[in-house]
């Protein structure tokens, strides 16, 4: 697991407040109010995409598009070099008396190579970035967070006021409120 950032793991962080919701609208309302009060939210886990939530918690734009562009350029260069080496430099072939250099027949291979590298590059980058590599232990804060529960996590530091955060969360009808520290959860 060398490639993984240990700090990303929830176990290696400070004490967390975990609020569990079953209603999407209350979740969004709670999140907005927390953000409005200046609380720094660690993350919100939902089983399905909730519209507008990304903007509320200030998720930055994914860098996947840049990775895609980089992979596409890599694939394009690789494949063009490959065709050139095989078909022009190393072993030119006369097929239907067509020229060998930079003809339209290169285009499908260049396209496919570009797409292939982009697809694999993006998939691997996505898995790596989201820590979905083989052998990882899941870090579900609630067994139902991939089913029908949504979770707000707030990391507690010296400056955070735990009571006021709990107050705000309670206003929006959470199903449960918990504390999470060193891999142990306790209900509040």
């Amino acid at each position: 697991m060398g490639i993984l950032d240990k700090n990303l793991s929830l176990r290696n962080r400070n004490k967390m407040l975990v609020g569990v919701w079953e209603d999407e609208d209350s979740l969004v309302a709670a999140t907005s109010e927390l953000v409005h009060n200046g609380v720094k939210i660690h993350d919100v886990y939902t089983p399905y995409p909730v519209h507008g939530l990304d903007r509320i918690i200030g998720v930055r734009r994914s860098k996947l598009a840049r990775v895609a562009f980089f992979c596409a350029m890599t694939g394009f260069t690789l494949v063009t070099t490959m065709i050139w080496y095989m078909y022009v430099h190393d072993w030119p072939m006369n097929i239907g008396n067509k020229p060998v250099r930079f003809t339209p027949s290169w285009a499908p291979v260049m396209f496919e190579g570009t797409v292939l590298c982009t697809a694999f590059g993006m998939a691997f980058f996505f898995f790596w970035r989201n820590r979905l590599v083989h052998g990882i232990k899941n870090e579900l804060l609630d067994d139902r967070q991939t089913d029908d529960r949504s979770i707000i996590t707030v990391e507690l530091t010296d400056n955070t006021d735990q009571n006021s955060i709990l107050e705000t969360m309670k206003k929006h009808n959470p199903v449960e409120l918990r504390e999470f520290h060193n891999g142990v959860q306790t209900t509040i």
Partner: peptide
């Protein structure tokens, strides 16, 4: 566009 061109170019 390329599909139309490529096949005609290749088949000659």
């Amino acid at each position: 566009w390329l599909s139309q061109y490529l096949l005609i170019w290749y088949a000659q």
